[in-house]
Design a protein around this nucleic acid. Structure first.
Lengths: 126, 126
DNA sequence: TTATTTTTGCGACTGAGTTGCATTAATTGT
DNA sequence: ACAATTAATGCAACTCAGTCGCAAAAATAA
C-alpha cells in the first residue's frame, strides 16, 4: 500500500482529465504523453487513480481500455453504473448521464453492469 | 463473396455451438480445438459464421471476444440486443433473455448497444 | 475428372498490456 | 535542510490475442 505520491507524471495525467471532459483510451494517452512519460508509467498511474476512485475505466468497442474522470459521482463510493457512448466515426468516447436499470436474474447475483452505446455523435452527424 | 463451404472444421465448430448453450470465448475455442484445427482457422470460421448471422459476438469483462449461437433470434435480422452475463468466479458467459431499453441521446444516433452484466452465477453461489 | 475457388496451416508479425529490476524522485523523520 | 526510507519511473524484454501473406489442401462447379 503506502502513500500515493504526487509526481510530475501524475500531475500531467490529472491535468489532462480536468481539461477534457470526455473519456480517453489508453492508447491515445500513451500517444499524447509520448516523450513525457513511459508507457508503463501511464498504465500504472491509471491503475492507481482508479484504485483511489478518481477515475473509472471501461472497455471501448474494440476491447481497448478507456478512462474517464468521475465527474458526477466523485463523492459517492464510486458505484457509478452509467453507460458510455462511442462514436464509430470519429472514435470519441464519453460518459452518458443516464441511470441504467439492471435486470434481476434468478439465482444469479449481479455485481456490475457496463453498457456501451455505439453510433454517431453530434459532430459527425452534421 | 462466394459460397461458404461446409468444411470439416466448420462442422466441428457448428456442432459445438449446438451442444453448449452458453457463450464461449475465442481463447477457450482455440484451446478446445487444439490439434484439430489452427488458431487462424477458428478466427476465420467465427468471422464467417457471424457474417452469416449464425452466431453473434461480444466482448467479455477482460475485453476478449466471445461468441454465442443466436438461439432466440435466429430468424430475425440479427438485431438482437440482449445483455450477456459473465460469472467472475468460474468465468462462464451466457446470453440473457431480457430486452434492454436503449436511452435516447440528444443529437446522437445510437446504432448498437451492448450490456455486460458481471457477478456470480447460480453454480458458484451455491 | 479436371478446373476453379474457397479454406486451411504455418509462421511471422502487430499491438496492447505486463513485469523485473536498477535508477530516480517524493516523502518522512530528525 | 539533510539523510534515510519508500514509492514511482524508465527501460527492455516479455506475454498473449488477434492478423496476414502465401503456398498447399480441400470443396464445389463444370
Amino acid at each position: 500500500m503506502g502513500v500515493v505520491r504526487n509526481t510530475k507524471s501524475v500531475k500531467l495525467v490529472n491535468d489532462l482529465f480536468n481539461e477534457i471532459h470526455s473519456a480517453i483510451g489508453v492508447v491515445e494517452l500513451v500517444e499524447k504523453f509520448n516523450g513525457q512519460m513511459n508507457k508503463s508509467t501511464i498504465y500504472r498511474i491509471l491503475d492507481r487513480l482508479e484504485d483511489e476512485g478518481r477515475v473509472h475505466s471501461f472497455l471501448g468497442v474494440n476491447g481497448l481500455k478507456h478512462y474517464a474522470k468521475c465527474h458526477d459521482c466523485s463523492k459517492s463510493e464510486h458505484v457509478d453504473i452509467h453507460p458510455h457512448f462511442q462514436c464509430t466515426t470519429c472514435g470519441k468516447v464519453e460518459c452518458v448521464s443516464y441511470e441504467i436499470k439492471i435486470p434481476r436474474l434468478s439465482n444469479k447475483k449481479i455485481e456490475q453492469a457496463q453498457l456501451l452505446l455505439t453510433g454517431t455523435c453530434e459532430v459527425c452527424l452534421a
